[in-house]
């Protein structure tokens, strides 16, 4: 019993010495091995760079997410027929469901009104009996020429580019819009004169 106890004590001592020795040795050898200030700082730099790269990647993925995956876009330019196809004072809903456009023949011009309510983007309905566009979502209403006058819509409906092609047919280009509050409704491309 006593022997084995002595043995154990010796073993422990040896282990302790070995440990201490190893530790000292490690400290000497590894002056470039993660212990010095210089290497510590370089590890910090690497670590932060990796973190920044991860966050950057995450941000990129997030931004990519906001771009729609669908490439198909409805046609943005279409031929809307001759001026004579629209009666004076008429609001035509002919292109509403296909292109989101009302062709409106005012006194001296034909314009292409966008069907997107300027409040929150619902599609208003043309109420012929009341001569107004009325939005079913929050009750905004617009006059025939697109000016807002009821409900919460903050600005008039937008008009899109409309012009006559070589054959005298009206062409609507939805990629260009004209906004009344910016004084763009008198620009020549925003209407076809009659």
């Amino acid at each position: 019993m006593a022997d084995s106890k002595q043995d154990q004590a010796d073993k422990l001592k040896a282990a302790g010495a070995g440990k201490a020795h190893g530790h000292v040795a490690k400290g000497h050898v590894a002056s470039g091995d993660g212990q010095t200030r210089r290497s510590f700082i370089s590890w910090v730099v690497v670590g932060w760079a990796a973190f920044a790269a991860c966050m950057g990647g995450l941000a990129t993925i997030t931004m990519r997410f906001f771009a729609p995956n669908v490439l198909y876009e409805p046609q943005q330019t279409f031929r809307a027929g001759a001026v004579s196809e629209y009666a004076p004072g008429e609001v035509s809903t002919r292109w509403k469901s296909k292109f989101g456009i009302w062709i409106v023949r005012l006194d001296d011009r034909v314009v292409a009104l966008s069907t997107i309510c300027t409040h929150l983007g619902c599609t208003p309905n043309w109420l012929a009996s009341e001569q107004k566009f009325k939005c079913p979502c929050h009750g905004s209403a617009f006059r025939m020429n697109g000016i807002n006058f009821e409900g919460p819509a903050p600005r008039p409906l937008e008009r899109h580019k409309i012009y006559l092609d070589d054959e005298g047919i009206m062409v609507v280009d939805k990629t260009v819009s004209f906004r009344q509050e910016r004084g763009q409704w008198d620009e020549p491309e925003s209407f076809v004169a009659v």
């Binding site: 509403k96 469901s97 296909k98 989101g100 069907t115 619902c122 599609t123 208003p124 309905n125 939005c135 079913p136 979502c137």
Partner: peptide, 10 residues
């Protein structure tokens, strides 16, 4: 869903 048709009332 159809973007050019909002239910009335929506």
């Amino acid at each position: 869903a159809n973007p050019t048709l909002s239910p009335n009332p929506a």
